[in-house]
């Protein structure tokens, strides 16, 4: 193998501004000017009202330092979002029909502050941060995504679950008008996912509203999606309209579809193969290469304690 050493000051392909972003520079200036004009009515440009592609205000964090993000093009055109079709390219092609604004999230179950929350209210006074996480799909590939969002625990604290809340159940919008893929029953709609409460309040668990510094594109789960970086991608439910705090373990859509293949936990684990394929390695999106899959997607130190004493082969 040829090992090239690179001098520190040398620019590489990585440093080149993505062409898409470069081309948007004027529209950015225009929208920035428009935003400046709106400064008198601040809520108008809160993330809750922002449209896909608008810049978000956020602070950088150390999460994912050293990871090289996958190109914006691949992150936004290679998606599993069956609500818009089952092929990887379908979501980018069909997600225009989704209307992520206005948006509200229903909160119910074992919680002190149930109700229907407008997205603006959820995001009001909520500081956003960027976290670069590797997303490992159960299909055997991974990509690195610079998310913008906030820890789910921030929201959970405000909603005040009762002591009976042992699990959190999430649901995606169910509206075949906006989500044409729902006209066929590929999965049991609405898409449902769940977390144990200790997983939900874990500081790594994120609610994302953007990526690459901009408001989430529809195909990536606008306007609000879950990111649990130590679990397979399908746990990261998109376009969330309902959050329920429950006593019993929820049944996720993929669990219902194929219980022997997709479990409730779905923790990334190279030692536990999918019944039909190996999980030992993963294809790196945007390249020909593979990398070794890491236990809990590299977060073993932070999350292994959640599963102490559990048989991960049985609780897949």
């Amino acid at each position: 193998m040829l090992i090239k050493s690179r001098q520190n000051n040398q620019l590489t392909e990585n440093h080149v501004t993505d062409q898409g972003i470069y081309r948007q520079r004027r529209s950015f200036i225009t929208s920035a000017a428009a935003l400046a004009g709106m400064a008198a009515v601040p809520q108008l440009w809160l993330p809750g009202n922002a449209v896909a592609g608008a810049r978000l205000a956020f602070k950088k964090t150390g999460y994912g330092q050293g990871l090289k993000p996958t190109s914006r093009k691949h992150i936004t055109t290679y998606n599993n979002f069956y609500e818009f079709g089952t092929s990887k390219s379908a979501p980018a092609a069909n997600a225009k029909s989704l209307k992520p604004r206005p948006w509200s999230v229903a909160v119910d179950g074992e919680v002190e502050k149930p109700g229907t929350y407008a997205l603006e209210d959820i995001l009001k006074n909520q500081s956003l941060e960027e976290r670069i996480y590797r997303l490992r799909c159960v299909e055997g590939w991974s990509m690195v995504i610079p998310w913008v969002g906030f820890p789910l625990v921030d929201l959970i604290k405000r909603l005040k679950p009762t002591s009976k809340a042992k699990f959190v159940e999430f649901q995606t919008l169910h509206d075949p008008e906006q989500m044409p893929g729902q006209r066929r029953t590929v999965l049991a709609w609405p898409y449902t996912e769940g977390l144990r409460i200790d997983e939900a309040v874990h500081p790594l668990t994120l609610l994302a509203v953007g990526l690459y510094g901009e408001v989430l594109p529809n195909q990536n789960g606008a306007p609000l999606r879950l990111v649990v970086p130590w679990k397979y991608g399908f746990k990261n439910i998109k376009s969330i309209v309902r959050i329920r705090f429950v006593e019993k373990q929820p049944r996720s859509s993929w669990q219902a579809a194929a219980p022997h293949e997709y479990g409730f936990y779905a923790n990334v684990n190279p030692q536990v193969d999918h019944p039909r394929w190996s999980q030992k390695t993963e294809r790196v999106i945007g390249s020909f290469g593979r990398r070794k899959t890491e236990l809990f997607n590299g977060f073993a130190e932070q999350v292994a304690g959640l599963y102490r004493g559990m048989d991960l082969k049985k609780n897949y």
């Binding site: 093009k73 691949h74 055109t77 290679y78 990887k88 590939w141 990509m143 294809r283 999106i285 945007g286 390249s287 020909f288």
Partner: peptide, 8 residues
């Protein structure tokens, strides 16, 4: 082709 997952 700048495929996301060329080998797949």
């Amino acid at each position: 082709g700048d495929k996301a997952d060329p080998l797949a």
